[in-house]
Nucleic acid binder design. Structure first.
Length: 430
RNA sequence: GUGGGCGUAGCUCAAUUGGUAGAGCCCCGGAUUGUGGAUCCGGUUGUUGUGGGUUCAAGUCCCAUCGCUCACCCCA
């Protein structure tokens, strides 16, 4: 291995044995999104660094130490996107999509964070996200949660836990932050190192500390719900009613605090306990202040993003297969004459049968070796060309799995026979 | 950034108190000179992650380093 290039740490290849499962998963997600009226928006992977500093909070971990940031040749500071919402809002604003309008948008693609890799956490990872703009009420929050619930059903993922919470509006959160600072400040000596550090910067984060010694203290801490402004409390109450009405089970997690600064009111996460420490498959919430923060008119917004590596890992854990053979028809050609005939025959079959997956054996070898390849290809049909067939203008056609029987077919009739076996229409002759 | 575990063939893994680096899978060929899957026979595959040290002798012990992995942190 010495001297060979290797993939960059934390960046994974998705190999053919997995790409089918990825594609199926992505298509399933797309179809559910369009069932709710979401339209795709394609966004750049690189944005100005300031965009993330402004939206995520300049002292958030992501901005502070996890971004792939570099100077463009003209001296601008650019960053590989660490998440999708900021870019989506920027694009919506820049292209006039958000002004006094309702928009339901989705995007997909790679995100980059320079973290230490572990199970379910990579430096290049993939997300599909959706954002709904211009709707202030809890009904869209409930709809978007219902959408994600449908997603898990469509993907066949079992038992996920939905956690919800309300962060209130910004002034209420500021009051609450002070209350927490007071409370934990009284016990400063018994705080662990991390929590002491957060006390000053972001006391809300102390709440989701996993430190065992901290749990009793956290349990007795002031609750965010008690500090919610009346508007947010009502929003949250109606959201819970709507979820109950829709039959969507959830648990209220008062310590659920999204990591990014721009969230307010509703936050939610879908969690599994089958993926180790990184069990959040999907997370989202409301961010009513972000559009304004980027210079737009005040625009309510709610959205979510899901981690595709984690979804795929869960599909694999469920033993959900995704593998299928590479082709339907495998052409065997032995001898110089047969090799010469194989290419045009393959081309004419592809012309006659749109969508046909056909591989031709290349590289020589006897019948035995080529049949072995045909078997491994997973093709249902082998087409055999040897010296005899070429001389007679026919081809052998063998059903590899159904009957193992081989028959001789005129080359002009081959497409019709294949169409019948595969249950596919022949292309109309012009 | 911090800590634990692990690095032997393409893959999964053996190798006794330090004593000639092995097996299965995969791949290739043959048994069957024009026919796959099952069986049998044969064959290819290594700087034991890298660099140093101890020793008559190191995959094995020591040091360093790189990589992978899991967890903390953080988050999708």
């Amino acid at each position: 291995m010495e001297g060979q290039f290797k993939a960059v740490r934390g960046m994974k290849d998705i190999l053919p044995e997995d790409s089918g499962r990825w594609r199926w998963m992505e298509e399933t997600v797309h179809s559910v999104l369009s069932a709710y009226g979401y339209r795709e928006i394609r966004l750049p992977i690189v944005e100005h660094t300031g965009l993330y500093a402004r939206s995520l909070g300049s002292d958030s971990d992501i901005v502070e130490k996890e971004m792939y940031t570099f100077l463009d040749r003209n001296g601008d500071s650019l960053s590989l996107r660490p998440e999708g919402t900021a870019g989506c809002v920027r694009a919506g604003l820049e292209n006039g999509l958000l002004y006094n309008q309702i928009q339901r948008l989705w995007y997909a693609g790679p995100m980059f964070r320079h973290e230490r890799p572990q199970k379910g956490r990579y430096r290049q990872f993939h997300q599909i996200g959706a954002e709904a703009f211009g709707m202030a009420g809890p009904d869209i929050d409930a709809e978007i949660i219902a959408l994600t619930a449908r997603l898990w059903r469509a993907l066949g993922l079992g038992a996920l836990r939905l956690e919800v919470n309300s962060l209130g509006d910004a002034p209420a959160r500021a009051v609450y932050r002070e209350a927490l600072r007071n409370y934990f400040g009284r016990y400063e000596s018994s705080l662990d190192e991390d929590s002491r550090r957060r006390l000053d910067r972001n006391p809300l984060r102390i709440l989701d500390s996993k430190e065992p010694g901290m749990q009793p203290l956290i349990a007795d801490a002031p609750r965010l719900v008690e500090y919610l402004d009346p508007g947010s409390a009502e929003h949250f109450r109606v959201l819970r009613d709507l979820l109950d009405e829709a039959g969507i089970a959830y648990v209220i997690n008062p310590t659920l605090v999204r990591g990014l600064d721009y969230y307010n009111r509703t936050v939610f996460e879908w969690i599994t306990d089958r993926l180790g420490a990184q069990g959040t498959l999907c997370a989202g919430g409301r961010y009513d202040g972000l559009v304004e923060c980027f210079g737009g008119a005040p625009t309510p917004a709610v959205g979510f993003a899901m981690g595709l590596e984690r979804i795929v890992a869960l599909l694999e854990a469920g033993g959900d297969g995704g593998g299928e053979g590479a082709c339907d028809v495998f052409v065997i050609a032995v001898g110089e004459e047969a090799v010469r005939a194989a290419l045009p025959l393959g081309e004419s079959l592809r012309d006659a049968l749109p969508g046909l997956r056909l591989s031709t054996h290349c590289g020589g070898g006897g019948f035995k070796a080529q049949f072995r390849r045909a078997d491994k290809s997973g093709a249902r049909i082998a087409v055999i060309l040897g010296a005899d067939e070429v001389r007679q203008g026919v081809a052998g056609m063998k059903l590899m799995y159904e009957t193992s029987k081989q028959e001789s077919v005129g080359q002009g009739d081959l497409a019709g026979h294949i169409a019948r076996v595969l249950g596919r229409p022949l292309k109309e002759q012009a």
